[in-house]
Structures are given as structure tokens and as C-alpha cells.
Design a protein around this nucleic acid. Sequence first.
RNA 1: GUCUCCGUAGCUCAGCAGGAUAGAGCGUUCGCCUCCUAAGCGAAAGGCCGGCGGUUCGAAUCCGCCCGGGGACGCCA
Length: 569
Amino acid sequence: MKKLKKNIASSILRAINSAFAGADTPSEAEIVSMLEYPPDETMGDLAFPCFKLSRALRKAPPVIAAEVAKAFECDGVEKCEVAGGYLNFRISNSYYAALAPRIIAEGGEYGRSHVGDGKTVVLDYSAPNICKPFHIGHLASTVIGHSLKMIHAFSGYNCVGINHLGDWGTQFGKQILAYKLWGDKETVERGGVDELVRLYVKFHAEAENDDSLNTRAREEFTKLEHGDEENTALWRWFVKISLDECNRTYDKLGITFDSYAGESFYTDKMPEQVEKLKESGLLKVDNGASIVDLSEYNMPPCLILKSDGSTLYPTRDIAAAVYRDRTYHFDKCIYVTASQQCLHFAQWFKVVELMGYDFYDKLVHVPYGMVSIDGAKLATRTGNVILIRDLIDAAVEKVAAVIDEKNPDLENREQVAQDVGVGAIVFHYLLNSRIKDTNFIMDDALSFDGSTGPYAQYTYARTCSLIEKAGDIKNANVTVTEPSEAALMKTLSRFEEVVDAALRDYEPSTITRYIIDVCVAFNRFYQDCKILGAENDDVRASRVSLVKATNTVLANALPLICMKTPKKI
RNA sequence: GUCUCCGUAGCUCAGCAGGAUAGAGCGUUCGCCUCCUAAGCGAAAGGCCGGCGGUUCGAAUCCGCCCGGGGACGCCA
């Protein structure tokens, strides 16, 4: 459709020039961006509003439309109608018919763009805190980040996924002390993160009445900072336990990272940046703390060092950005975090710019809205959390029950239940604009009807099943006659521009919404037209081609939103 | 207080680099399995797009003010 739009735009331009010689005309690219999809299918497949041209051409829009229509001619467009100030184009069925074999031939390449060829993008996402439960609040960054990685890779970028672990800080002094006081090896090995959390919670309870514990915890952390052997070993062990827990979820989601360089990794990389800030005169001491004043940019100051000289969140992010620039030479560095951190990112991005780093305009913050349960903030302490593993278990269990009811003979029952259960959750997370707050409701996340993951996977499985039953069909001569066939092909033709939009806006839901459109169009076609039982072999072969084209698009699109593609469900 | 995000059907949300009569899903009511997976398809009902102004040939979409909600705003990350 991108190509067809370009052709139509160029034809429109030609028609304008021949009808209004010598007039001031828009560029082809401008016309492409003016083309739109009419609100109603009956009007046409594409529309060109002529209103904006009326000033330059000094004619009323309907007159322009009529004149352009007279001279308009373009391959793939069978009709060009005037409707008020609009020009409505009807795309020929032969264009759609020709598209199906092209999609099938391109296979995994269909919809792929090359805007990122030769470029590198670093994506920082998920970033769980070590020794903390992995709950539904972390799932947003995880799936949005990974989806953006997939979308970028599909657009040609070389992608580096970084899991910036929260693996450093005074809380590890508390964790170590709690373990030394009340923990034991065996229990932690058996209980994993749950046991670590129990110890941590116990520490806070005990410290309420005994402040000396806080002092001792600080000492433990200081020992860790200075490389104390025992504490380092404990810390490494805690990190491993936490990561093992997260990896179980990442495995189910099909997520891998290229780097796990977390906060601890940058401890020795901050002094250089602090030094640079001092030298450049950007750093000012205020109330004992070292800050960069940003009042000129209408922002509160960015804190670089506490009054005791220790570093802060922005310090680490600056050091990490510099390290990543030197290591990966990125063309973009994307941070997927909750929107609460918007100011923080705006601040340190500005500081990086003031420091003179030329990569400052390659830093991108991609925020998402708050996740709550029953309108209440997620909080480990009050117990208002849902663990990701519990959520996944519930989803998988529910899917398994549906399978037992609808498809008891299914092979790979376990694996399919897993893929569909996880898919339901991921789809639910990536359905809406990322910036919106979400009130997490279990029943909605585990719904299988309507615009849901299972619906998408069900539709995909339908295409697989049809293709399998159709057997080998060679040299199908594709014809598009039924409205539902044309509508399906029109939807499939939009894939490229949907990927572009998702990339431009850092918005995975654009893909999710599109997948629904494809499924709706396909299921309508499926309902309207007999495929395997078509009236003759030609029609049958043609329709199977449409099924194959749909199958290709779904196979390419579903992984972009972290969805698996089981062939049978 | 300042900054910022959000406000569209009973509920959850699309649509927002301005375009034609504002769309889905859930829920409700009613249809469709002797036929390719009914996790499906169709139909009905449901709206002053938070409010008031402005810009424009045209505003759910852009701008201003107001109302309601979330978030951030110096030693957490």
C-alpha cells in the first residue's frame, strides 16, 4: 500500500499539473501524507481531500476534485470519484489479487522495512530489582521494551537489549545482614526470592524497634563496596537467585537480553563523569549536595552527588549512557520506564547535552502509565501485588481447561497452554496506548473472547489448519471477487505502514490493534466464503492463497508483540 | 504552588502530524454449527468526544482558560 500510495500521489500530481498548468503544487510526499482512508468502505479505498489546494489553485475544492478526476489515471486504481471536495479512489480487485502471491513470496520479509539498516539501537528495559518479587508492575517495561526491540529488528536495526538490573545500593547491606542474622543457606536455596523477601521484610520490622540494625546494615554495604569476600559472594548469590526467577518468566515470553550490566556495573564509571561535570563548571554545591542547575530550562536542578559525596540515580544513568555510546556507538538509546520518571530523564538528558556529548539527541525516553490493582498502588509491603508467575500460572491453567473442553486430542497440550496463556497476558498488556494508566483486573487479563491474544492465535491456527488441509497447490491464479476478500487484502496491504507507525511512535499497541484488524477481516472472509469447499478448484486455490497471505502477515506480526504462533490450539 | 500526563457508549479503550455520518471489545438482547477449529460470525441497543472560548472552509484531534483524576517536583531508584 505504501508503494500504491506513492503511485497514486504521483498520478494526482500529474493530473494537477495538467489541469492547472503553472500553479504552485505540493510535493509528492505531501500528497502521500494527505491521502487517507475514507470513514466508510462504500466511499472508496483511499481518499484525497482537495481543500488544502484551493488557496494555491484559486478554485473551490469540488472544482479541483472534478478537474483532477478528469485527468487522473493510475495502475491499480479502477475508479476515481468526486464526492464534494474529496476524490475517492477504488482500488481494483486485480491489484489485491496480485498482492497475495507477492506476500507469500516475500514470506518473512513482508512488511519489513530497511530504515534501520546499518544502525544500532540500544534498548534498556525490564530492569527488575534484585531480591524483590517480580510482579505485574514489571511486566509493562518488559513486554513494551521487548516488543520495541522486535519492531526495530524488523525494521533493520541492529538491536542491543540491556537489562539494567537494580543490583546495587544500601538495601543490599540490609539484605546481607538479614541473611546473616536469620537466614540459612538451605532455606534460601529452597525458597528463592520469596525467602529473600521474607528476610528483607523481617529486617524492616526489626529495625523499627532497633535502629542499630540500620547502622550495621550500612556497614555491611560498605564492606560490599570495598570488595569484602564474604559479602561479595552473598551478593552474587542473591543476584543469581533473583535472575533465575526472572529468567523463568523471560523464557516463557521468549525474551533474551544481550547484556545484564546493571547498577553495580557502573559504580567505577561514575567518577569520570563527576570529574567532567566539575571541570566544565556545571556542578554547583547547594545545601551540601552537588547539583546541575537547570532553571534556565524550566526544570528543577539535577542532583549528582548527595551531601555525603555518594552518587545518585542521574549520576549512574549519565555514566551508563556514556559507556553505551562508547561500547555500542548507538544511533538511538531507548529507555522504557514508568512515566513517574519523566522528569528524571528530561533532566539528565539535558545534563548530557550541557556536558557536550553529541549523543544527547539520540536518547529516547519511552514512558508508560501506572499499573494498579483495584485502583491501589502496587506495593510489596502491603501485599497489594500479583506475582508474574502466579498470573502466568492462572492463565495457563485456564487455557488448559478450555483446551480440554474444545480440543481434548490436541498434541503438545502443555506447550500450547503455555503459549496461549502467556499470549493472553502479553496481548492484554500491549493492547492499549502505553501511556495510559491501567487498573489491572484479573478477569480482563484472562479473558479469551473478543480482542484478546487467544482470538489472534485462534485465527492464526485457523489459517494453519486450512493450509495444511489444502495440501499442495501450485501456481494458483488469484482472483478477488467477494467484498470480504478485497477487505482482507486491503487490511494485509497496510502492514508496512503500520510497522512504520509503531516504530515512529514507540507504540507496540499499533501492532496489536492491527493484528485485530487482520483477524476480524480474515474471520469475516472465512464466514462469507467457502475456502476448501469452494465451488471449483480455481476459486479454491485462489482463496487458499489469501489464507496463506494472511498466515504470513500474522506470522510476521505476532512476534512483534512477543506472541508465539502455535499452529494448532 | 509549579510542571506533566489522562478525561470519547454502562465498563475497558481505538481514533488525535485537523477532514466526510465518531468506531471496537466486554456486558445486555436476538440470530447462525448435517459444512474448512463456534476461542468464531451477524444483528439490535447504547454518545452534547469533561466544560467554555479561540484558530480554520472544516476540531474528538491544534491553542487558551476552567473542572475532574493520576504522576513528578533535592539528598530513593
